[in-house]
């Protein structure tokens, strides 16, 4: 057997036996589906955003530093100026109030494990307390 074949077998063995958490995989699949449905129109399929209108999610420092706010804005929306990678954005983002804690966790897991970042699973049980921490928008009169 040539060296190349031995290399291939080793690679296959390592990848087949590496512990890919089935729960993480499930979150990623469902998260991607929800991302395409609710987020990709503006933030684009590849997470790059659109010029200075919609901020990028891929390689975003804002995303990295603001998990609670990211979760809250997905459900309740976000208004006003934000700075992402040194650029100011000011396009109101409508929330999707119908998203459940599990769905928010799935989308977050997808965002935080795509486009070059690997943060691992964001469990649905973490979402409840995070949502409690954010100020909900006042009902319109």
């Amino acid at each position: 057997m040539s060296k190349r074949w031995i290399g291939l077998v080793v690679v296959l063995w390592v990848t087949a036996c590496s512990p890919i958490d089935p729960k993480l995989k499930q979150y990623l699949v469902e998260g991607e589906r929800l991302y395409v449905l609710h987020c990709s129109n503006c933030h684009q399929r590849d997470g790059q955003g659109l010029r200075r209108v919609y901020p990028p999610l891929a390689g975003s420092d804002y995303l990295k530093e603001n998990l609670p706010r990211v979760i809250c804005s997905m459900k309740y929306g976000l208004q006003g100026e934000i700075i992402v990678n040194g650029i100011m954005y000011n396009q109101a983002m409508p929330g999707v109030p119908s998203l459940t804690e599990l769905e928010l966790a799935e989308i977050a897991t997808y965002l935080y494990n795509s486009w070059g970042t690997q943060t691992g699973l964001i469990d649905a049980r973490r979402i409840g307390p995070l949502l409690d921490s954010c100020a909900r928008p006042r009902p319109r009169r």
Binding site: N41, C42, Q91
Partner: peptide, 16 residues
């Protein structure tokens, strides 16, 4: 319209 989250962002990407 600018606050539209459905098809407009895609339309604007294409119009660009």
């Amino acid at each position: 319209f600018t606050s539209c989250r459905t098809i407009c962002p895609i339309m604007k990407t294409q119009m660009l």
